[in-house]
Write a protein that binds this DNA or RNA. Structure first.
Lengths: 265, 265
DNA sequence: GTCCCGCCTTGACCTGTGTTAAGGTATTGA
DNA sequence: TCAATACCTTAACACAGGTCAAGGCGGGAC
C-alpha cells in the first residue's frame, strides 16, 4: 500500500508500546512514579488495521480509547447520498476517543487511512485512574482542549477560506503536527492521503484538489512526488494560508496550570 | 436591541446566580454536598456585555471561565481581509473557556451577539477544585467532549452540506439546544441573530442566507417574524438537513461512566 | 418631525468550484 | 502476459453561491 511501513523513522516517543499512554501523557505533564505505575497497569491491547478498515462506525458503542502507534486515521461522517466529511486526522501519537466512557455512542466513524497500529485502552479504566490521580484528569482535559482547538481551526478552514488557502493551510498544519511527533523533516513529510481524502477533509471535490495542487506546484510553493510532500517556501505558503502555528504549540500544560494542579489550595 | 430581555422566560436552571456553576454541573452529575460547597466557594463575578462587545479577543491571556447567564455569544476568528468565521454559539447555560487555565492564550475572539450576562470564574480555581474533587474533573471532561461533538457537527455542516441544508440544520440544532435550557417552545424560539451572523457561522454570504431563508419560508417549512422563528414542519426540515439530534442528547453522564467515577477500583 | 443607521430584501451578473468524462500510469494478481 | 484496480491528471461545461447595487423599513437620536 503506502510504503510507510518500511521507511518510517523510529518512533522516538512511542517505542515502548505498553506504555504508549505514559509517553503520551508525559509530554504534557511531569508524571510521578505512582501515576506512571497506574497508567502502566492499565489493560492495553495493541492491534493493526489495514488501510480502509474502520476502527469504529457510527452507532457503535465501543468504550475504548486508542493511542495511534503508527499510521493515519480519520474521523468522518457519511451523508446518505455518499458525501463524506472527514472531521479530523489522527496521526501517530494522537489519542482517539479520549473520553470514550463519557460518550454513549459513536456519532462518527473512524477509518484507517493507511495501514495502522493502534493501542486500545478500556475507557472506563481511564476514568477510574483519573479519579485516583486527578492530575491525570487535568492532563486529559488538556488534551481535549487541544483537540477542540484543532476542530475550531478546521471550521475556519472549511468555512471561510478559498480552496487554494485551504490546501495550503492543511499542508502546513500537518507539517507542524508531524514535527511534534518527529515524523517530518524540516520542510517535508510523507503525506499518505489520496486527493479524494484531502477533498473530503477540506470540503472540496477530488478534481478541484488536483487543480489546486497543480497551481501550488506551478507557483513553486510545494513539490509532491508520490507521497513525499516538500514545501519550497514555507513562509509564502503561510502567508497565503494566513497560517499561524500558535494553535499547535501546546506541547505542555502551561506553568500556571501545572502549578494549580500541584498545589490545590 | 433585541427584545429578549423583556420576554425571555425565567431561567429555570440559572436563577441563583452565584451557583450557576453548581446548577450547570449538576445537570451532568449528581453532586455531593462537599462538591457543591467547593463550587459555591469559588470566586465568581457576574457582569453584562452589550451586543457587539467582545468578551475576549484573540491574543488575550484571560484565565477565566464563563457561564452564560443570559444572551448569546459567538466564538469567532477574523481573517485579515475581513472575512469572519463564527466557530460556535454559546447559549444561556453554556460554559465558555472551560479549561481556560489550560490554554495559554485565546486563539479566537468571543463576542456578545446580544446583550448578555455572564458569570466569570477564575480558571485556575476551577482546576484546583478538580484536584480535590476528581468527579468534578470528570464532569468537565464530559462537557468538553460534548463541545467537541458540536464542533464536529459544525464541520460537517459547513464542509459538506448545501446552503439549504446548512440553514435547516442549524435551525434545528438551535431548537434542540434551546430546549435543553428551556429557552424554546416546542417548535419555535427567539433567534436573535442577524442574517450576517448566520452567514458567518454557516460559511455563507449574507445575501445567500437571505435567499435560503426565503426559500424555506416559501416552502412552508419555517416562519420568521422579527426574531421569532417557528418551524412548521420539523420532520421535513430534519429530513432535508439529515438532522439527527443524537449528538445533542447528552444531558447526563452515561451510567457506566458515573459508576466508574464513583467506584474507582 | 427628519435624519441616520442597522438590518432585510431583491435583482443582475460573475466566478469558484462541482460534475462529467476520458485517458494515463503504476501496481497487483492470475 | 494481461486484466483489473487504484489513483492522478486534464478539459469542457454547469451551477451554487458570491458580489455588487439599489431600495425598503423601522427605530433612535436630536
Amino acid at each position: 500500500m503506502t510504503d510507510r511501513d518500511d521507511e518510517s523513522p523510529p518512533h522516538a516517543l512511542l517505542e515502548n508500546t505498553p506504555s504508549a499512554l505514559v509517553l503520551k501523557v508525559g509530554v504534557f505533564l511531569h508524571l510521578t512514579a505512582p501515576e506512571i505505575e497506574a497508567l502502566d497497569a492499565l489493560d492495553t491491547r495493541e492491534f493493526g488495521l489495514a488501510k480502509g478498515q474502520d476502527l469504529a462506525v457510527e452507532g457503535d458503542d465501543i468504550r475504548s480509547t486508542y493511542v495511534v502507534i503508527e499510521g493515519w486515521l480519520g474521523r468522518y461522517r457519511m451523508l446518505e447520498d455518499g458525501r463524506r466529511q472527514i472531521i479530523s486526522f489522527a496521526l501517530p501519537g494522537d489519542i482517539l476517543n479520549l473520553d470514550g466512557a463519557l460518550v454513549t455512542d459513536y456519532v462518527y466513524s473512524v477509518m484507517a487511512l493507511t495501514d495502522t497500529v493502534v493501542c486500545a485502552v478500556a475507557a472506563e479504566a481511564v476514568i477510574e485512574v483519573t479519579q485516583e490521580h486527578p492530575r491525570l484528569g487535568a492532563a486529559i482535559s488538556w488534551m481535549g482542549a487541544r483537540e477542540r482547538t484543532l476542530l475550531a481551526e478546521q471550521i475556519v478552514r472549511v468555512g471561510r477560506r478559498s480552496a487554494y488557502e485551504r490546501v495550503a493551510h492543511l499542508i502546513l498544519e500537518l507539517l507542524y503536527r508531524l514535527h511534534l511527533v518527529h515524523e517530518a523533516e524540516k520542510r517535508s513529510y510523507e503525506l499518505p492521503l489520496t486527493q479524494e481524502v484531502l477533498g473530503d477533509s477540506l470540503g472540496l471535490s477530488l478534481v478541484h484538489v488536483n487543480r489546486t495542487l497543480r497551481r501550488l506546484r506551478k507557483e513553486g510553493l510545494v513539490r509532491l512526488e508520490g507521497n513525499s510532500l516538500s514545501i519550497d517556501d514555507v513562509d509564502r505558503l503561510a502567508e497565503i494560508a494566513e497560517f499561524d502555528p500558535a494553535y499547535l504549540r501546546h506541547e505542555h500544560i502551561p506553568d500556571a496550570a501545572e502549578k494549580a494542579i500541584n498545589d490545590p489550595t
